[in-house]
């Protein structure tokens, strides 16, 4: 009798204990972002103390041996490469997403979606290899001569093209979700008053989905911002503020990845690289938070 009574209690104790443990893990995992910010901030404090933040961000002088760390060329490199990638990717991705959600027969959609998933799964080094083999020579031999300039091919344009392909899946995936959230009735109403399909897309679907589409693009930008290996392999890595898309650039992630070897032998160098990582992290967090907030609202609006 006693045993029977005790048994359920120990089961409940197990249940409670497991619950507490899992809660702890959940809180820990959710706080990981803040932990990362704190950890990188602690590491970048020495370089932040050595010179004013404005100088770090806007100086073009990158001379680690003299303790001068001006991130401006790298920040501009990141912005240029990301900009080119987004300019290429956004129109293509939107057209594809509209096609898949509004026009394509179900059979086509079932075929295309897994292929886009495969594209998303290809490792960034492989994108880099492809960029070096195809994109870089193409720019060197065809694009640069066309504009009558010399380029080794290792350029912002090469980085932008490779990066654009890498963010295709992100933008398409999110845009598809957003289009799916637009109620079918709105489309039917538009078609019923005589609008063509494209007019319906243009005036009804896109208008309704606009915030979500913007969020999809911002997520794409955030992904492009931090992409490292593929860009590093094709972008040239020259620490100068670029002037046009055929110039080489040196984006922030490439700076971090390229200098891991030397960073412990020069004072403040490791701290400066951790600051670069912190800058990336903060910008990406901001972009992610913004777009997630918009997407959450989109999701709520359809319930």
């Amino acid at each position: 009798m006693k045993r029977l009574k005790l048994f359920p209690i120990s089961r409940r104790a197990k249940d409670l204990l497991a619950g507490k443990l899992m809660l702890l893990l959940t809180i820990l995992a959710a706080l990981l972002v803040l932990l990362m910010v704190a950890g990188l901030y602690l590491k970048s404090r020495p370089v932040l103390a050595s010179q004013p933040l404005a100088e770090l961000l806007f100086s073009t002088k990158w001379r680690p041996f003299r303790g001068q760390f001006g991130f401006f060329p790298f920040i501009m490199g990141t912005l240029w490469v990301t900009g080119v990638a987004v300019l290429i990717a956004v129109p293509l991705c939107l057209l594809t997403a509209i096609y898949l959600s509004e026009y394509a027969p179900a059979r086509v959609r079932e075929w295309v979606k897994p292929l886009i998933d495969i594209l998303a799964g290809i490792p960034s080094v492989v994108f880099g290899v492809w960029g070096m083999l195809v994109v870089v020579p193409f720019i060197k031999d065809s694009v640069a001569p066309f504009f009558k300039v010399f380029s080794t091919g290792y350029s912002i344009l090469a980085g932008g093209i490779v990066l654009a392909i890498m963010i295709f899946p992100v933008i398409i995936h999110v845009a598809l979700e957003v289009f799916r959230a637009v109620p079918q009735e709105v489309r039917e109403a538009s078609l019923a008053v005589g609008a063509t399909r494209w007019q319906t897309v243009k005036h009804v679907v896109l208008r309704k989905a606009l915030p979500g589409v913007a969020a999809a693009i911002v997520l794409g930008i955030a992904r492009a911002f931090g992409e490292t290996m593929a860009v590093l392999m094709v972008v040239g890595n020259v620490a100068k503020v670029p002037g046009n898309v055929l110039d080489p650039a040196y984006p922030l992630p490439a700076l971090i990845a390229n200098n891991y070897g030397e960073m412990l032998s020069i004072p403040l160098y490791d701290s400066a690289l951790m600051l670069a990582a912190l800058i990336l992290l903060l910008v990406i967090l901001l972009f992610n938070l913004l777009s997630r907030a918009v997407l959450a609202r989109v999701e709520r609006s359809i319930r």
Partner: peptide, 15 residues
């Protein structure tokens, strides 16, 4: 939080 964490690039995880 997990969605945002998912967007953090691998180089930052490396750092």
């Amino acid at each position: 939080a997990f969605d945002v964490l998912n967007g953090v690039p691998s180089i930052v995880f490396g750092a």
